[in-house]
């Protein structure tokens, strides 16, 4: 058995790459599904009737008040108990998407409400319908406002994807733990995993800053 870190790293290379792949797919799926759902949550919070608003408000408050780990565990165990055979991967992605949706919902709500009332009035004055007002006046401005917080949520989802290791999804962190249980190099391989997560999140953060600069209003 070889004992240097580099030899162990070479042995584990495919396992690690596989783990990165799973981490990235979990994060992407959760961000996509969560953002789509989150936009509806945000719209319901701003334009919904009293009852819809109350229901959606309760949904976001409950989700935001519960730790992600609890959501992941609950999604995993509850889906099995009610006879939905989701498996750990789908149950985990579902939990992360729900978590993401409540955050995106709040971001969208904040962005829409930050647009001055005069914009809607001006749109009405030139005879736009509500749909036209929304799609060509409010939404583009809200998108620009959302962007920094949304990128932040995306990085948050990559970090939250580590929690799926607890229910046995073989993403990067669980793969790392498996490798460590074979070669006992916990220091080196946790450093490696930390470094990989750092690179992914740092990349997302900088991409976000780039997009923000690109979409900023010229001043």
């Amino acid at each position: 058995m070889s004992h240097t870190f580099l030899e162990q790293l070479w042995i584990a290379r495919y396992v690690i790459m596989n783990g990165i792949g799973v981490t990235v797919s979990i994060s992407l799926l959760a961000i996509l599904a969560g953002s789509v759902l989150g936009v509806f949550v945000g719209l319901a919070l701003v334009y919904g009737g009293v009852i819809l608003r109350l229901v959606v408000r309760a949904y976001t408050d409950i989700i935001r008040g519960t730790p992600v780990l609890v959501l992941v565990l609950a999604s995993y165990y509850v889906s099995a108990a009610v006879g939905l055979d989701l498996g750990p991967f789908s149950a985990g992605v579902l939990a992360l998407a729900i978590f993401c949706s409540s955050h995106v919902g709040e971001i969208v709500r904040g962005a829409l409400q930050a647009i001055p009332k005069g914009q809607t009035e001006a749109a009405k004055a030139i005879g736009l319908t509500f749909t036209q007002t929304f799609t060509s006046v409010l939404w583009p401005q809200a998108m620009r406002q959302c962007l920094p917080a949304w990128v932040n949520t995306a990085a948050e989802m990559v970090k939250a994807s580590t929690l799926l290791s607890v229910i046995g999804v073989a993403e990067l962190l669980l793969r790392t733990q498996e490798i460590i249980s074979r070669n006992f190099m916990s220091l080196q391989f946790y450093f490696l995993a930390g470094g990989l997560y750092f690179i992914i999140n740092y990349g997302i953060e900088h991409f976000g800053k780039y997009v923000e600069r690109k979409t900023a209003l010229p001043s």
Binding site: V158, A160, S161, T162, L173, Q177, Y197, F198, E205
Partner: peptide, 9 residues
Amino acid sequence: NLPILVLVL
């Protein structure tokens, strides 16, 4: 930029 679970472990 690090997941807290990685830090905990």
